[in-house]
C-alpha cells in the first residue's frame, strides 16, 4: 500500500491524538510518517523495549498483550506506542499484528523535532493524553 501525503494527513486527522491539529501541522507529520507493513503475528512493538516510534493503524488489526494476557484489540485509526515516544521509557505492552497490517510510523526523533517548533502539536498530544487519563479515572469509578 502506498499512500499519498494528502491521504496520510487525512488519516492522521481522524486519530484522537491529533484531533484539531491545523492542516499545516498534519501535512508536516504526514510527510515525516513512513509506512510499515506487518504480517500476521509480527510484533509492532515489544513490551520492555525502549520505544522509538508511534504507530497508527491504517489497515488490518492488532492485539495488545501484556504478560501473556490480551488487553485489547486495535483497528484502523487507533494509535499505539505514544507513551514510550514521549518519555523514552520501556514499552508497557506488546502489540502484534492480526492478519496483514499496515501502519503509519512516526519516529520519535522526527516527532521531537516537530515538537520544538509546533506548539499546536504538543497541545493536541496533551489533549489526547488528557482524554486517556480521564477514561482511566472513569473506568476506575464504575
Amino acid at each position: 500500500m502506498t499512500m499519498t501525503v494528502a491521504e496520510r494527513a487525512a488519516l492522521l486527522s481522524r486519530v484522537t491524538l491529533f484531533a484539531g491539529l491545523p492542516e499545516a501541522s498534519l501535512q508536516a507529520l504526514a510527510e515525516l510518517a513512513g509506512e510499515a507493513e506487518f504480517g500476521d503475528g509480527d510484533a509492532i512493538v515489544l513490551q520492555g523495549q525502549v520505544g522509538t516510534g508511534l504507530f497508527v493503524i491504517v489497515a488490518g488489526a492488532a492485539r495488545v498483550v501484556r504478560g501473556g494476557e490480551e488487553l485489547d484489540r486495535l483497528g484502523p485509526g487507533d494509535y499505539l506506542g505514544e507513551l514510550a515516544v514521549i518519555d523514552r521509557m520501556p514499552r508497557m505492552a506488546s502489540v502484534f499484528a492480526v492478519g496483514p497490517t499496515t501502519c503509519l510510523a512516526l519516529a520519535s526523533w522526527d516527532l521531537f523535532r516537530r515538537v520544538d517548533g509546533d506548539p499546536e502539536l504538543v497541545h493536541s498530544l496533551l489533549r489526547g493524553l488528557a482524554l486517556r487519563v480521564r477514561h482511566l479515572s472513569e473506568h476506575h469509578s464504575h
Partner: peptide
C-alpha cells in the same frame, strides 16, 4: 511550549503509573 512539553511528560507518567490499559 516547553512548559506544555513538561505537562505532556507528566501526563505520560500518570498513564504509566495507572498501569492499566484504557483507550
Amino acid at each position: 511550549p516547553n512548559v506544555m512539553f513538561r505537562m505532556l511528560q507528566e501526563q505520560t507518567r500518570r498513564l504509566r503509573s495507572a498501569n492499566r490499559w484504557a483507550r
